[in-house]
């Protein structure tokens, strides 16, 4: 059985560098397209041909399991030749600059490069030096657009809509690209967004992002339809931004008691990988209200949608 995506939907841009710059129609179009791939991915025959002959390079300067794997699967299911490059096995380890790496890869005529980098803005810098499409798979603390899209798809499939929902994003807002992309997307789609964190993990100026700000979970989760937890990086835990894992879990870790502050039946999300017992309790992570595994499934579909949509803009498409 073949599912033919509506060819009518086209993104107006060559790259997907962030949610910033996408219109509500762009986001809805991508989510609609992704819905079709969700169905495809549940079939035995998952292969399509829209990227046949295309070369996709996954260029990961930062380790990743789920994002890299899902981009690889997404590309392969659409028929592209997919090559994975990571910092551990390339000349980037030998001191080559980001721009030289970009120029080198560009000479090999890829059609799409998927980039993750530890520095905010690095993906945009690379995009300026290559002739193909570039997808941001996460740059520093700036954006992670496909994560926000897969979160939106997960929410939409469970709630039927996004607008009017109250989404509480909890944890290390300051360092989180997931938070930034989600705030922009959820605002664009008409959701109410609240960020919840200790003050040391909130970037100064956050109140001008169009979000409500709370500094404790009781206030922060009140009336929330969706509780979105963020990963806390280990290097932030021990006394620099917060005193300890145990204090963080006590005040900000999502357990059953704190989840009860949210609306009854509120749904729980986490971009992964989780620190069980730091930002989320296992009972909640694995519980009936958790969408965490569904998020991973949506990840492949959303990345297929992004690849498909961008490929329609490629030369000779």
């Amino acid at each position: 059985m073949t599912i033919a995506p509506k060819p009518s939907f086209v993104l107006s841009m060559r790259h997907l560098l962030g949610i910033e710059g996408l219109s509500r129609a762009d986001i809805s179009g991508l989510l609609d397209l992704a819905e079709e791939f969700v169905e495809l991915n549940r079939q035995v025959e998952k292969k399509r041909t829209s990227l046949r002959g295309r070369t996709q390079i996954n260029l990961f300067f930062e380790v990743s399991t789920r994002t890299q794997a899902s981009f690889e699967l997404a590309g392969k299911r659409l028929g592209a030749d997919v090559m994975n490059m990571s910092t551990s096995s390339s000349s980037m380890r030998k001191g080559e600059t980001l721009i030289d790496t970009a120029i080198t890869l560009n000479a090999m005529h890829p059609d799409i490069i998927v980039v993750r980098h530890h520095a905010s803005g690095a993906v945009e810098l690379l995009a300026r030096k290559v002739d193909c499409s570039v997808i941001n798979a996460g740059d520093g603390s700036h954006e992670h657009p496909t994560q926000a899209l897969l979160d939106a798809l997960t929410i939409r499939r469970n709630k039927g809509h996004i607008d009017g929902l109250l989404v509480a994003i909890c944890g290390d807002i300051m360092h989180s690209r997931v938070a930034r992309s989600n705030i922009i997307l959820l605002n664009a789609m008409g959701a109410r967004v609240r960020v919840v964190a200790p003050s040391t993990l909130l970037p100064p100026g956050i109140e001008r992002f169009g979000v409500e700000v709370a500094r404790d979970m009781r206030e922060g989760l009140a009336d929330a339809d969706i509780v979105m937890m963020l990963r806390l990086q280990r290097e932030r835990m021990n006394g620099s931004y917060i005193p300890s894992m145990s204090e963080y879990f006590h005040y900000f870790g999502l357990d059953e008691k704190k989840l009860a502050y949210a609306k009854p039946g509120a749904l729980v999300m986490h971009p992964g990988p989780m620190n069980r017992g730091v930002e989320i309790d296992s009972i909640v992570a694995d519980g009936a209200q958790s969408l965490i595994r569904e998020q991973v499934e949506m990840g492949v579909a959303v990345r297929m949608a992004v690849l498909e949509a961008l490929s329609r803009n490629l030369p000779n498409a």
Binding site: I242, E247, H250
Partner: peptide, 15 residues
């Protein structure tokens, strides 16, 4: 204020 009074890592102020 800091663990071991060494001026580096904050203590568990909340707890």
């Amino acid at each position: 204020i800091t663990k071991g009074l060494d001026g580096k890592e904050m203590t568990e102020i909340g707890l």
